[in-house]
């Protein structure tokens, strides 16, 4: 019997795959390994130590930036998820109508516009508001993060809703549920895994952002990524590796949770 075509049996497949994996993961592995370096170098090994984790966890600036990152990510992800849930309901719970594709594009626009453009635009826009209002708190960062997190929260929620039969809400209405009851008792429980997935994705995206944050932040408003960027400019110690490793671990945990949550009850 003739063998069917399989890309895995083409010449060079294994080599290319191996090169890609090495290129992807090797730098990260090196970074993690040197987080445990005794010597103050990111390239020469001087024995195993946890001292960089210790010093990072006692560094007031790191703690300050980390807390700020979490604060912004938590608020922005929550707001973005609420907005994304409403947007997803509005774009999927009616039969398709003209103009719907345009609305999809509008909601997902932050995915298409280069971050640097959004950053510059927000910088100019917010500086005017700052002059008028005199307010220069975290509100600007939270607003900016909320805006670019919406499409990331929107996508898993919409995917979940699209797999949900419209006749479920109809059945609820037919069985005397008011629109609010139908939402509470039928739509929301079924949508919940999608909402959680959207929330986690938005949280990670907000936590990770550099470009827009760098443009929007006022003095003394460093988040963890912008703090790290600032440190690298001044010369690197394994403390950066240690922070990166902790950050990596957190992202892996959240993305793993996201994976399990979005697979649930399918």
């Amino acid at each position: 019997m003739a063998k069917s075509f399989s890309i895995r049996h083409q010449p060079g497949f294994t080599t290319i795959a191996a090169v890609c994996f090495v290129a992807l993961y090797m730098p990260i592995i090196v970074l993690v390994v040197y987080a445990f370096n005794e010597a103050p170098s990111t390239s020469e090994w001087g024995g195993f130590s946890l001292k960089w984790f210790q010093s990072a966890s006692q560094n007031a600036q790191v703690i300050d930036a980390t807390l700020r990152s979490f604060q912004i990510a938590a608020i922005a992800a929550t707001l973005a998820t609420i907005a994304a849930t409403m947007a997803a309901l509005a774009t999927t719970r009616t039969p398709p109508y003209p103009g719907l594709t345009f609305k999809y594009a509008m909601i997902n626009q932050p995915l298409m516009v280069p971050e640097i453009v959004t950053g510059v635009a927000l910088l100019i826009f917010f500086s005017r508001i700052k002059i008028f209002t005199g307010y220069s708190g975290l509100g600007y960062l939270i607003a900016a993060h909320t805006a670019f997190c919406i499409p990331f929260a929107y996508l898993p929620i919409r995917a979940r809703l699209e797999n949900m039969d419209l006749s479920l809400e109809r059945a609820a209405a037919d069985l005397y549920a008011t629109p609010w009851q139908a939402f509470r008792r039928v739509t929301l429980p079924l949508l919940w895994p999608g909402i959680l997935a959207g929330l986690m994705l938005a949280f990670v995206i907000s936590l990770d952002d550099v470009v827009i944050t760098e443009f929007v932040k006022s003095g003394g408003q460093d988040t963890l990524p912008t703090y790290m960027l600032g440190q690298i400019r001044r010369g690197i110690t394994p403390e950066i590796n240690a922070i990166s490793t902790a950050f990596l671990l957190l992202s892996v945990v959240i993305v793993t949770l996201f994976f399990f949550v979005s697979r649930k009850r399918d």
């Binding site: 479920l168 109809r170 059945a171 209405a173 037919d174 069985l175 005397y176 429980p189 079924l190």
Partner: peptide
């Protein structure tokens, strides 16, 4: 629809997947 004393059996049944058989029947 929720103000009409009329009920429907749907072509796709539209049973609530997150509820038991009893909960489905008792919903209305």
């Amino acid at each position: 629809p929720f103000k009409r004393p009329v009920n429907t059996v749907f072509q796709s049944y539209a049973l609530f997947p997150h509820m038991t058989v009893s909960q489905n029947i008792g919903f209305g």
